[in-house]
Design a protein around this nucleic acid. Structure first.
Lengths: 104, 104
DNA sequence: ACAAGACATAAGCATACACTTATGTGATTC
DNA sequence: GAATCACATAAGTGTATGCTTATGTCTTGT
C-alpha cells in the first residue's frame, strides 16, 4: 500500500529533513549528505524509502544520481487529506494560507 | 515534535483504520473495536498515540470515553503540505475539490 | 587498463514499536 | 457495597527499523 509507505517514510525525521532539502532544489546523494552527519549507506537507504513512497524520484546523470521531489507522493497525501475535509474548521490559519496560495 | 507524532501515528495501518472510523462519526473505544479483531489494551494504546498526535480527542462521558476526530492534527498536516505547494501539480482533482470546499 | 569516485546492496546489531497478559482505576448496576 | 463494566497502564516479547561496516556495480579520469 502506497499510503502506508508514504506515512512510514515521513515518520522518520531524517527523511523529512532530506525531503525538505530536495524541496529547495534537486541534489545528488553526496550533496544531500553535506551538513547532515549521516553515512553514505544510510543516505542511500533513506532515499530508497522515499523513492518507494513516491515522495522522491531519481534521474541518473553519469555516475551521479540526481534526486528531486516527486509530486505524486504529495498528491497522494493531499488526496488522503481531502477525505477528511469535513473536519477542517474554516478558522484555521493554515487553511487560509493554503487557500491563498492555491488561488493564484 | 508534533509533526513527528502525526506521521508516526499515521504510519500504522490499524491507526489509520481507527481514524477513518472516527471520521465517519464519534465512537467510544468499545464500539471502535467492533469488527476489528484487536484487544482492548491494543485499542487503548493506539488511541493514546492518536491523541498525542492531536488527530483524535476524547470526551469523557461517565465510564465511557467518546473519541472524535481532532481537526488540529489535520490542520497540521495541511500546514506541512502547504510548504511544498510549489510541487503540487495543478491537475490534481483532490486539490481542486479542496479549493472549492474552502472557498465558501 | 586501472584507480578512484558515486552510489547500491548485504549482513549484523541495537533500539523502537506493536502486541500480549496481567492489573489498576473510576463509574455504574444490582 | 460488591460485582461488573469501560478503559488505562505496566511489564514482557517478537518483529520492524535505522544504523553500522563491508562489499559490489557502474562510471569517469588519467
Amino acid at each position: 500500500m502506497i499510503e502506508h509507505d508514504i506515512f512510514r517514510a515521513l515518520a522518520d525525521s531524517t527523511r523529512r529533513t532530506i525531503f525538505e532539502k530536495l524541496a529547495n532544489g534537486s541534489m545528488n546523494a553526496s550533496m544531500l549528505r553535506q551538513g547532515m552527519d549521516i553515512s553514505q549507506p544510510a543516505m542511500s537507504q533513506h532515499l530508497a524509502v522515499l523513492r518507494a513512497a513516491r515522495l522522491v524520484r531519481e534521474q541518473k546523470e553519469g555516475r551521479f544520481v540526481n534526486y528531486e521531489v516527486d509530486p505524486d507522493g504529495l498528491a497522494l497525501i493531499a488526496q488522503w487529506l481531502a477525505k477528511y475535509r469535513a473536519y477542517w474548521p474554516a478558522r484555521i490559519d493554515a487553511l487560509k494560507l493554503l487557500l491563498k496560495d492555491m488561488d493564484q
